[in-house]
């Protein structure tokens, strides 16, 4: 999707591919941490998409073991199949209901990543539309956006999400599930997105206002380019950098919000195994089996680190001047 600018005939085209996104990619390729993170994110996304194939068992299947009536050694701990330490059969062990933690973590990963994906799509769409309107529309609309952002910045994010999430108990306008996603999950995603779009709108607005005054806009206009061509060929590629960076950093925020809210019991409803639900369920049994908390937590940590390094890499690649 690299946007290519056609060079004027008087100047020979530089050899090889060029274009805004391609240049940024070339700069990022030198950043090892960002490239590794990109591969990690890619692998996690593939795992999440094919979660049903990757997970060896169903997330709700129980592996109870009966002692068979005859107790051979009464002093040995009873093997019930619950709280098993990691073994070859259950690489992350089993939980308090003898379910496979690995399978549940893989499905949880899918929920976390869909939270990120959903937030990015919704926030980008609202942000671009509102931001463009604010930059090109009336003054009063612009002022309104500023007031809305003031309120969002002063409103503690988590409080707002908790309240909004509680308003709709388990159904979204009467639907229990939409497109196969549970309404409670969807609502949580929606609440997360609603706290984040004003920042995106502000970024888009700021970018457009700056670019409009740039020399290359004037140059393109002087060369007789149409307004639509200027917008698509010149403004969009230059405005898109900070927006992509902001969108990348939205992912860890959405993943965090899902996990944190599910942990306190206002997010995804059990038995749906989101990472937050998993941590919350296993938290009560921390002293008996810490692996149940450790593996979902580690998955979250990998997600956060990967998105952070990838986002940092993107920011440096899009704006070489911002390098430390």
């Amino acid at each position: 999707m690299a946007v290519r600018t056609e060079p004027l005939q008087a100047f020979p085209a530089p050899s090889g591919r060029s274009g805004f996104l391609w240049d940024a990619y070339k700069r990022m390729r030198r950043n090892r941490a960002a490239m590794i993170s990109m591969v990690v994110i890619g692998m996690l996304v593939v795992t999440a998409i094919f979660a049903d194939l990757v997970a060896p068992y169903s997330p709700s299947e129980q592996f109870l073991k009966s002692s068979g009536g005859v107790v051979e050694n009464p002093l040995a701990p009873r093997r019930t199949g619950k709280f098993e330490r990691p073994t070859a059969d259950h690489v992350f062990g089993t939980d308090q209901l003898a379910r496979d933690i690995f399978s549940r973590t893989v499905v949880g990963l899918r929920i976390s990543l869909s939270a990120a994906f959903f937030a990015i799509v919704v926030v980008t769409v609202i942000g671009v539309v509102v931001g463009t309107f604010a930059a090109s529309g009336s003054k009063s609309f612009d002022d309104l956006l500023m007031r809305v952002t003031d309120i969002t910045y002063a409103f503690p994010d988590l409080l707002f999400i908790i309240l909004l999430r509680s308003v709709f108990a388990d159904s979204l306008f009467g639907f229990k599930s939409v497109l196969g996603i549970e309404a409670s999950v969807l609502l949580l995603f929606l609440a997360i997105s609603l706290t984040a779009w004003p920042t995106m709108a502000r970024i888009i607005r700021g970018q457009l206002l700056t670019i409009r005054e740039m020399e290359y806009t004037i140059a393109a206009r002087a060369l007789g380019a149409r307004q639509s061509r200027i917008a698509v060929r010149h403004w969009l590629p230059n405005a898109v950098g900070p927006a992509i960076v902001e969108a990348t950093f939205l992912a860890p925020r959405a993943i965090f919000a899902e996990a944190a809210l599910s942990f306190i019991g206002i997010g995804v409803n059990p038995p749906t195994p989101s990472l937050g639900v998993l941590i919350s369920e296993h938290f009560s049994w921390l002293q008996i089996n810490w692996t149940g908390v450790a593996f979902p937590t580690a998955t979250l940590a990998v997600l956060f680190l990967a998105f952070q390094f990838f986002g940092d890499g993107l920011r440096d690649a899009f704006d070489p001047r911002s390098r430390r």
Binding site: F256, L286, W290, A294, T297, L300, L305
Partner: peptide, 21 residues
């Protein structure tokens, strides 16, 4: 860089597992 990336939520569980358990 690692601490800035990982929210307090995750750090807290790591602390609990290491120091409490």
């Amino acid at each position: 860089t690692s601490l800035a990336a990982v929210p307090a939520f995750v750090t807290a569980f790591i602390f609990l597992i290491v120091f409490a358990v």
